[in-house]
Design a protein around this nucleic acid. Sequence first.
DNA 1: ACATACTTTCTACGCATGTAGTAACTAATC
DNA 2: GATTAGTTACTACATGCGTAGAAAGTATGT
Lengths: 130, 130
Amino acid sequence: MRKGSPKLSRLELQVMEVLWDKGPCCVRDIIDALNHKRRPAYTTIQTIVHRLELKKAVHRASRVGNVFVFEATLSRNAAHRKLIDEFLSLFGGSSQPVMTHLIESGQLTYEEYKDAEKIFQELAKKGRAK
Amino acid sequence: MRKGSPKLSRLELQVMEVLWDKGPCCVRDIIDALNHKRRPAYTTIQTIVHRLELKKAVHRASRVGNVFVFEATLSRNAAHRKLIDEFLSLFGGSSQPVMTHLIESGQLTYEEYKDAEKIFQELAKKGRAK
DNA sequence: ACATACTTTCTACGCATGTAGTAACTAATC
DNA sequence: GATTAGTTACTACATGCGTAGAAAGTATGT
């Protein structure tokens, strides 16, 4: 039963990345960890965290005094998977044109491309061949 | 002088795809060409086309009676490039993790992967090697 | 000329998102 | 206990997008 990860916005993603990287954090920690050009207001991040709670992407892991500590509920993998699905759907669901564009625009180097072959090998080893 | 293509939404993209595929079209043609599950109302597409005009992505090429014929101004390549840039920026601008994910999630087959090698060869031939 | 059908223009509405202010609460300090 | 600083809870607002209705214009068949 596919649950369907929630759709996360750009800023929501950035907050999630912090939680995935650093583990459980309070709002202050998140702000400090964000490498955001224009540092958003404390309450802005609070709003985002709150929306992430509504989306079940994070939950309150504990509280220290009056400070809540938040923890990611949604996995990084699931979130990234969702992002990629959304994106591919813009191209009709096929990853081929995306690859093509990445290569033609020089955004994927030949080295990176070649390295990826290893991933196929790993997968094959794990029995997920073909 | 980077012009910066406008950011196009999903539906805007779909409309653009029609214009790129079929060439200049009037609103009716666009609707007929859209393979949209839930066919949107005529005026919905008109609104989208209008927004595309504001974004300079399309322009009125001619009029036949009281019907306007619209033509893409923005190229498919530029639009796709923009999309990909936007998307990659969510992953810190690097295409490697995206490739990895595509492969691990089975969305890029080994055949497709292998085929992509040809693109590098083409590019190399054209002198844009490395 | 009139009715019918389609087009254009204008306006609107709900939801998502980035942004943040204000009020209320809590902890710590004098 | 009163002041102060940080946190939480609630509210707000502009913009973008998908959606579409209403009004007004135009072409066309009879």
